[in-house]
Amino acid sequence: MTADEIVAELTAHGFEVERVADGREGLLLAATGGFDAITLDRMLPSMDGLAIITVLRGAGIETPVLMISALSDVDERVKGLRAGGDDYLTKPFASEEMSARLEVLLRRRGAPPDPVLRVGELEIDNARHEARHRGADLRLMPTEFKLLDYLARNPNQTLSRTMIFEAVWGYHYDPGTNLIDVHIARLRRKMEAAGARSLIETVRGAGYLFHATA
């Protein structure tokens, strides 16, 4: 995945993109501010990506950073996140996955955590860890609740299975396709049994999408 492709993908998604191919210049650009998000390669000429993020965070600049690296080693991921990266993506990746992750980062930054999320007749209560439809408890298991919560808080965008697995279960590896599918299927059944429309759409070959425009 080259920088050109990243720029093309992000532009296609309606982002305005500025790019530099050098670590030091990148740091300067990031520091002058005004950006909503940064994709940062771990390996850069003149300054390492890890050093850039450390300096940025040290200077109090909290722009969300998606780190991109060929090193998928767990240690590397942990290092990247500890240094202040918000998410970590390993090469090679599908460009949709990258833009989806960036959108999640932007939303996380923008939205102040609301304890009760309302989507149509659905209420997702983070304080009491329960989801209600027309006031009736859906009786979700903790994991099912976390799954619904994550989907609902990132609506109208495709979320890949890896992203869902990372966010809900907290592990960073490929869980295999149908593992997430069966959890989604179960959540859908519970929602439909309660009379709620499922709202969760399967995006073939990509992941899932939660419709917030009920």
């Binding site: 090469k91 090679p92 599908a94 949709e96 073939r204």
Partner: peptide, 19 residues
Amino acid sequence: AHDLRTPLTRLRALLYRVQ
């Protein structure tokens, strides 16, 4: 494995777009 993965990812993205 790594070098083949990059073109494969691209191939998948292309197919996905066609789909």
